[in-house]
Design a protein around this nucleic acid. Sequence first.
DNA 1: CCCGATGTGGGACTCTGTGTCAGAACTGGA
DNA 2: TCCAGTTCTGACACAGAGTCCCACATCGGG
Lengths: 192, 192
Amino acid sequence: MEETAAQRRRRRLRAEVTRRAVALFAEHGYAGTSTEQVAAAADVSRSTLFRLFADKEDLLFGLEDDLLASARAAVAGAPAGLPPWAALRSAAVAIAGQVAPLRDVLLTRERVVAGVPALRSRAAAKLRRWEAAFAEGLVAGRGVPEQDGLLLAKLVVACFEVAQADWLAGGPGDLPDLLTAALDRLPGLLEA
Amino acid sequence: MEETAAQRRRRRLRAEVTRRAVALFAEHGYAGTSTEQVAAAADVSRSTLFRLFADKEDLLFGLEDDLLASARAAVAGAPAGLPPWAALRSAAVAIAGQVAPLRDVLLTRERVVAGVPALRSRAAAKLRRWEAAFAEGLVAGRGVPEQDGLLLAKLVVACFEVAQADWLAGGPGDLPDLLTAALDRLPGLLEA
DNA sequence: CCCGATGTGGGACTCTGTGTCAGAACTGGA
DNA sequence: TCCAGTTCTGACACAGAGTCCCACATCGGG
């Protein structure tokens, strides 16, 4: 099943609407921007808006969904000889490289999300989907026990999160390097 | 500042309303239960309901808030000689002991939350508040660097979560033991 | 050219969450 | 005991989110 023309149009429309919505939120605040205003700014009806996005929050979090699938694949597809943790590391670093070009959008979103508890919940949920994706890659592609897979995934996402916060805040180096540094710090922390 | 009579009454009222709300949600589903029905079942007005709880979701998640503060204290108050990770471990195991008697309520809640994405977001956010509490205990009470504290907190919460899932699902042993087991498994996972 | 399927806009509706307001209940003090 | 100030409560009105339904446009295949 290739990708139909309709699907392609839908994706482009989603991306465009997202772009304008984030801009509006950044300017007038999240609560201060109604879905009607977003719809108007994006030249669609409110009906269509809710057909494209599950809810208002989805306007902010629908961006990196493509990467989720590739995360799962990257874990499962790592060299077969690698032990689980090493495979996970390499996959995470690879994803980090793909996240890099999104820095500006992520920064803007971060600023909007920070002030709204409901959005921070949603962000947390998003991270759990990352955990699930990594875990599934380990379990399905490498036969890692389910509990161990989930635990490992949580570890790597925790490092990712810390590294990304550092990176967005303007820390030195690019995201993959910061992530590697965080991952390397892990064993030492458990001993101390 | 002792606790005023008004504060005590408010807490008891909150607990009672929560009890009835969870029961309603379990019976008719979360979406299928309006805040008006909850208010009626709890013999308060809708106004009062929203004065007691921030929002509808809070009816499910306001239960363990007391434990959050005690988590922070438990970390900061662990024996001064203990290294950070060991202090964190002992605090977490202590908290696990206090969670144990809530098993039934937690199970009911789990069943309601499982089917509603928005509630799962909220649950994720709740876990992050635990992370923040543990991290703050480490940073404020023991001078651990902020990033390390957050990372360690995430590790311990990840273990807690895995252990609690196991415990609620009927795994063998009580929560503190399961938590200890998960914590012990951590170093091995990083090497393999 | 027609026809069914899919996408879109419009509008009505329910429910959540906020704000206001008047009155009830409780407080400490004369 | 009564009074004045404060706090709590219920009733109501309102804006916005999200759902539903229907009429209309648009498009690809016979």
